[in-house]
Design a protein around this nucleic acid. Structure first.
Lengths: 300, 300
DNA sequence: GACATTGATAGCTATCAGCTATTGTACCGC
DNA sequence: GCGGTACAATAGCTGATAGCTATCAATGTC
């Protein structure tokens, strides 16, 4: 049995007339007759009751007709749904991200993406460390938004910087430096700093420690905090001050103010990462969206 | 696209190896390659990612694989369910009946039928008059159990008597005749009788009035009652006595006793009726069941 | 009774599903 | 590096069959 038989049978069942049905499916009447006979023969029981002059459906025919219709609709459906996945219109997209991308960048991109591809199920997965990041990136995560992911192999992954961000100083509003409009890096040498855990090649801490090296400062670390949010929270609690990517300034915690850096300073780069072998259309479509939103990122 | 393509694709998707998949669907590997290419070409997008050495499913392939499996299962299903209907195993059966068949015959038959064909939905439809009976028999009802349905055309319907039943006398236990073990018809000449509405060629009243004609008695009709149940109920209420088919004796109402008829007397025949053009397998199966239950009915 | 309309049959043809043989790559063991 | 093996794709052939035209046989219709 082939879909052809179902298509033909549906036509006959609806027209109850071989000649008209044949015209409808664009074949000659005898061909149709033969195909229906063949179908009935294969099933082993008749579907139609024919007299000269008229055709009617048997009980079996009625039942089979309903089923055939459903089947044909579903076949159409199968093609359509696969097609939507091909165009990236629907499917599943798992986005890995580090907290520092969460407040500003992610919502912006997701809003745009969801508007274009409302049928894609988006899962967000926070990446907190190199250890988890490495394994996640190799399996679960289809695309990630992270900072300085240099620990990832350039063989397996593609990278695209989408935003170069200046650092800003987060400090309690009661702090003496809060009076200055902008602050020099050198000034920070003696200040108690709050930093995320230092893991070379991962997160904005990577850029942070390069800055201190550039200025030949040995920072005095007051506290390590897991995640960008925790860093800012500790600043609010008065444990010290912190250098964070500018976009984190969107977290306006009470008692915390942000000050720009005076003088030259490395940026923290937000990077889009995806597996080089990824052929998922949702990923392709997501990349397009991000590029559109952040025109002029640099690929590598 | 044909079911063939789906069958082949499922094999490839499960084996992830053309040669093995080809063996599984009993064709040569190049044929399979060609069919899959053809499928992808028709869809307009690829389903598989092939390297020399290995094959894997794309996102589209995953989705299409699921759909294809469902489709194939459903195709199988469609055949099976039509087949069940063909064998009479499932489907719908509308049984028309007159009340006098209800107490004894119907339950017996239905019990047996339902045991054999549990998947058939049985609808019971009471037929109360010639007017409704005629229209119902021509459309809604697939088979009927009635008495003396001589109003129905012998052109359109088939008849089969399944049970010849003697009449019995239903009378209040306080009635003088209740003292006799059996009663002569002649005795009834002066008694107030309760009868169903007399419609020639319909129901046991038809036989009833032939009996009176045979004995040349003009009965004194106390009351007409719609339906056999109502007749017996009126007897219990003391409105008179009634001649009813023996099987109605199964209604043992308080205050009503049944007495056999002494002497020769016509029977009331329970008749199975179905449309001559009926090709429904549920009907065929039902007829078989009835014949098995009441061996030796006479066909016409 | 001529004519139109129905589905089935007969016989031809062209398409294409499936075949065998072969090619072109990748990977493996030595 | 070099035969050996495993894989998918290609080339070219063949047979089955989907679909064709012409026709038949039966049944209405005017």
């Amino acid at each position: 049995m082939e879909l052809r038989h179902l298509r033909y049978f549906v036509a006959v069942a609806e027209e109850l007339n071989f000649a008209r049905a044949a015209r409808r499916v664009h074949i000659a009447q005898p061909s149709l007759t033969k195909q229906i006979q063949q179908l009935e023969h294969e099933l082993g029981f008749p579907l139609l009751y024919r007299t000269k002059k008229k055709v009617e459906l048997l009980d079996t025919g009625h039942a089979f007709f309903e089923e055939a219709l459903r089947l044909l609709r579903q076949a159409e459906n199968a093609i359509q749904s696969a097609h939507r996945i091909h165009t990236g219109e629907s499917g599943r997209l798992v986005i890995g991200f580090s907290q520092s991308a969460a407040p500003e960048v992610l919502p912006r991109i997701l809003r745009r993406y969801h508007a274009l591809y409302p049928k894609v199920v988006v899962d967000l997965l926070e990446i907190v460390s190199i250890q988890s990041g490495e394994s996640l990136m190799e399996s679960a995560v289809s695309v990630a938004l992270v900072r300085s992911p240099t620990f990832l192999s350039r063989e397996l992954f593609c990278f695209e910087t989408i935003q170069r961000e200046r650092f800003v100083l987060a400090l309690p509003d009661s702090h003496p430096l809060a009076k200055q409009k902008s602050v020099r890096i050198k000034t920070l040498a003696s200040e108690p700093l709050i930093v995320p855990p230092l893991q070379p090649g991962w997160g904005y801490a990577d850029s942070l420690f390069q800055i201190f090296r550039d200025y030949q400062i040995v920072p005095s670390i007051a506290q390590e905090a897991l995640g960008a949010l925790a860093v800012v929270t500790l600043v609010a609690a008065g444990f010290g001050i912190a250098l964070v990517p500018a976009s984190l300034g969107h977290f306006s915690l009470p008692g915390v103010i942000y000050r720009p850096i005076k003088g030259p300073c490395r940026t923290s780069d937000l990077t889009l990462v995806w597996r080089r072998d990824s052929r998922a259309s949702t990923v392709r479509a997501f990349l397009e969206v991000v590029r559109e939103e952040y025109k002029g990122g640099s690929r590598s």
